[in-house]
Design a protein around this nucleic acid. Structure first.
Length: 558
RNA sequence: GCCCCCGUAGCUCAGCUGGACAGAGCAGCUGCCUUCUAAGCAGUUGGUCGCAGGUUCGAAUCCUGCCGGGGGCGCCA
């Protein structure tokens, strides 16, 4: 818990509102009485409704049996007393909102706070920091990464960055299946290609398989076991996947091989299943070994070992979850594709069966990325080889546009990707608008010169007093900067990087309005120029910060 | 049949643990480059928030039903 970071002006303001609401609640109904819901502190969209507005009195009214507008008046008086000079004016509005107008001094102080916090601004606010393991992408190394993987990669990477900024410790892992039937099938497809034979019906048809086969001299040698060919092929593909991810700016702490879980005696899979067995959740029927997931709300029990004795993927997944837990990760996040939704219940059941709190395993569903051609929806099947690879997408529209495109939508919304449209519109991607704002600031600062900027940003610099009124565009930009802490908190709470993408765009818009209305270089008196330079530096810092959270670059010129 | 997600402006989407006349980008139309970057700015056109009920002082937001789109219901993952 960072005391410095917690002292951002909006958090202070929110605390003041909560405190005032609590005073009113207690006065009405005795100590211990609290408002029924958390009062809002919004920035109203419409002019004339204050810089901030709270519905505290509206929530309190029914709870204490008094008219909201009357309570709102008392709330305003309490706030005026608490906030002193920071509050320029307040009013009761509508059914009982309290609209607050903050002073120019409060706004100037806000810019100082942003500058002082630097790259830590808006961060470190997690009330209870946790050790979180985020497993994402985890695409099987039987094909190159497809465009849809770009969504998973961008989502997971950005979420990790946001969680870290909020104060959590995050581990990023890519789990890959290098055992089991799909891998064997892949090996068979590679061999078929090497021998010039038709690829099996249920095999992998894509052209890339031929290039893999060509890279494995022993693939055509039928004396070499298929598992060896499969292993070599997996190794090659994993390398390709890693380089694509690197190009995409996505980092993993570890690539976790499924085979690790099957190795040793007893293996981790064996140990995990034993643990479930000792807890009484395992039984044998029809020669197969079953996990009683129905005891935890699943609709039917699931097989751990098939009748032939082979472990299922579920068995390995259970072992991996246990492995993560034993390494000290207290929360596990697992973004998966929408086609895995039926898998959630059994994973949570197994997690609970191992004795863990199922709330600490969060499976997040990412809806699909649909490839659209014209108005047709095209299928993307890895086996048939009909897909756009992530590399192709990056070739076409670049890393920054791809990441922003993937991150701007909420994870529960399907993304339609029209390659032609993406190509023709890539220059209209909002990401460039944001980057452009950053480049403009960089240009302004270049014109001012390092020395001038440094003196302007010094803590003791003169930024003008009450005699110099701030422009509306300045005040608006400052409030947008100060909104970052709650935006980050919101993005964390919802596991929603798209909130940061939207915020970045709004911030760029506010800056552009400021740039339009407020000349920086040469503004008079000098204190105004100093203040505006400080505001530019603060804005640039926050843009760098949020673009960083999205994994997007912040160029100094465009 | 059962389960999950979505249905907001011509297009792509924010807003959805209820709040004050519905937001942005793009596209369209009209203007603006001797002025800190025109990848920009100003103005303008455009929406019964899928439909119908319900809860509420107040519903795009919560509940129910229906319609439409996507996905899932194997000893595949």
């Amino acid at each position: 818990m960072s005391a410095v970071a917690a002292r951002d002006p909006v958090t202070e303001l929110r605390e003041a509102v909560l405190a005032a609401a609590a005073v009113l609640a207690e006065a009405a109904a005795g100590a211990g009485r609290r408002p029924p819901a958390r009062p809002s502190l919004d920035q109203p969209k419409r002019a004339g409704q204050g810089d901030y507005a709270t519905n505290a009195a509206l929530l309190l009214g029914p709870a204490v049996g008094r008219p909201p507008r009357e309570l709102a008046g008392e709330l305003g008086q309490l706030l005026a007393a608490t906030l002193g000079d920071a509050l320029a004016s307040w009013e009761v509005a509508g059914p009982g909102f309290v609209n607050l107008v903050l002073s120019d001094g409060w706004h100037r102080h806000g810019v100082r706070a942003v500058l002082a916090a630097g790259s830590r601004f808006g961060g470190g606010l997690a009330p209870a920091p946790e050790r979180i393991l985020l497993e994402f992408v985890s695409a099987n190394p039987t094909a190159e990464l497809v465009a849809a993987s770009g969504r998973h990669a961008a989502f997971g990477d950005s979420l990790a960055r946001i969680l870290e900024h909020h104060g959590h410790t995050v581990g990023r892992e890519y789990y890959f299946n290098d055992a089991g039937s799909q891998v064997r099938r892949f090996g068979e497809s590679v061999r078929a290609r090497a021998l010039g034979l038709p690829v099996p019906e249920d095999g992998y048809q894509g052209e890339y398989v031929a290039s893999i086969a060509a890279a494995i001299p022993e693939a055509a040698d039928e004396r070499v076991e298929i598992d060896v060919v499969a292993a070599r092929a997996v190794e090659i593909l994993l390398q390709r996947i890693k380089s694509t991810l690197e190009r995409y700016g996505v980092r993993f702490d570890r690539y976790f091989s499924e085979q690790e879980l099957h190795a040793g005696s007893p293996s981790e899979v064996t140990r995990a299943v034993s643990a479930l067995e000792q807890a009484g959740h395992v039984y044998t029927a029809e020669n197969a070994v079953w996990l009683r997931t129905t005891a935890f709300g699943d609709e039917k029990d699931r097989v751990l070992y098939r009748s032939g004795g082979e472990p299922t993927y579920l068995a390995a997944d259970v072992a991996y979850m246990q492995n993560k837990f034993e390494r000290g990760w207290e929360r596990q996040l697992l973004p998966v594709g929408a086609d895995h939704h039926g898998y959630i219940a059994r994973l949570k059941a197994a997690f609970a069966g191992l004795g863990h709190d199922p709330d600490r395993l969060e499976v997040l569903i990412l809806q699909f990325v649909h490839l659209v051609e014209g108005s047709e929806r095209a299928a993307m099947s890895k086996r048939r080889g009909e897909f756009v690879t992530l590399d192709e997408l990056l070739d076409e529209i670049g890393v920054d546009a791809t990441r922003y495109f993937m991150l701007q939508s909420s994870h529960d919304r399907t993304i339609d990707l029209n390659l032609d449209l993406a190509r023709s519109q890539s220059s209209e991607n909002p990401v460039y608008y944001i980057q452009y704002a950053h480049a403009r600031i960089a240009s302004v600062l270049r014109h001012a010169g390092d020395l001038r900027v440094a003196t302007a940003c010094a803590a003791e610099s003169d930024w003008g007093g009450p005699a110099v009124a701030l422009e509306p565009a300045e005040r608006g930009l400052i409030r947008k900067l100060l909104a970052l802490p709650e935006e980050v908190a919101e993005a964390v709470e919802r596991r929603g990087p798209h909130r940061i993408a939207a915020y970045a765009l709004e911030l760029a818009q506010e800056f552009t309005a400021f740039y339009r209305d407020c000349k920086v270089i040469g503004a008079a008196p000098e204190a105004v120029e100093s203040f505006r330079l400080g505001l530019c530096v603060a804005t640039k810092g926050v843009l760098v910060l949020v673009l960083g959270l999205l994994g997007v670059s912040a160029p100094d010129s465009m």
